[in-house]
Amino acid sequence: MKITELFDRGEFVVSAEVGPPKGINIDHVIEEAKTYLSGITAVNVTDNQSSVMRLGSLATCKALLDAGLNPIFQLTCRDRNRIALQSDLLSAAMFGIENILCLTGDHTKLGDHPGAKPVFDLDSVSLIHTVKLLESGVDLGGNALVGDPPKFAKGAVVSPCSDSVDAQLAKMERKVLAGVDYFQTQAVFEPEKFIAFMEKAKQFGKPVQLGIIIPKGAAMARYMNNNVAGVHVPDDMLAELAADKERAKAGITGVEIAARVIKACRPYCQGVHIMALGWEKHVPALLEQAGI
């Protein structure tokens, strides 16, 4: 099902993310998704996240679909040129995958194959533009498709707490002009910044899902502050995570923090997107505490 149908109905849309393994056994990924995520609207599948080579996003999406879940196919422009990207989009549509998320992708130098050639033939904006063309029955080369064109709910990302928030808003607008249907954000820990961002972003009239990470501890939070673009865990949350190590390790503190952020931001957005990073088991408790 296209998640845009739910936005249109005014529902608060919940999605969560799963990362394919570095190998070919995915039974446990599917099982976890079925156990903890089957109650939510859609499951994002990351595409060689952080430029680390893994099982493919498209194949994992198909496996989730067969298991009765509703996948969102993430695709980045890092590893494929415009021919391969369009071909994978047609493959996804043939499998019955209806949701996509278009990203530029991290640079190859950040991953586990730093010597790989970075492609970036297209970027997130020109990829959305390309999907729109495919949907109209023509490819980026101007050639007609044969038979039914694909149709997708087309998503993209934006980083509301970035220190370059003006440049991020400008990019967001370009994605809107290119034809995007919805947005998911980078992880938010500062509701004030998110709310200020949404004040400016609401003019674009596109649904935005608040990005959430359940912090696993003070060390992880500090790591994100130093290394992850657009993510900042404020000092009081750091102190909260550091205060009781056992509680933090058990996920209790992290779930509390994440639930607070969701509650504070909920009136300003149209859904939430949870990047569980292996903590899928805490997603049901988080949604309950957040009152969703």
């Binding site: 990203l103 530029t104 991290d106 640079h107 970075p118 970036f120 970027d123 997130s124 904006v125 020109s126 990302v157 934006v158 980083s159 970035s162 220190d163 370059s164 440049a167 991020q168 400008a170 990019k171 370009r174 980078q186 992850v228 673009a229 657009g230």
Partner: peptide, 12 residues
């Protein structure tokens, strides 16, 4: 990344 349509999400 020689991007021509705006900033990626990686600037910090």
């Amino acid at each position: 990344k020689s991007l021509v349509n705006g900033q990626c999400g990686g600037s910090k």
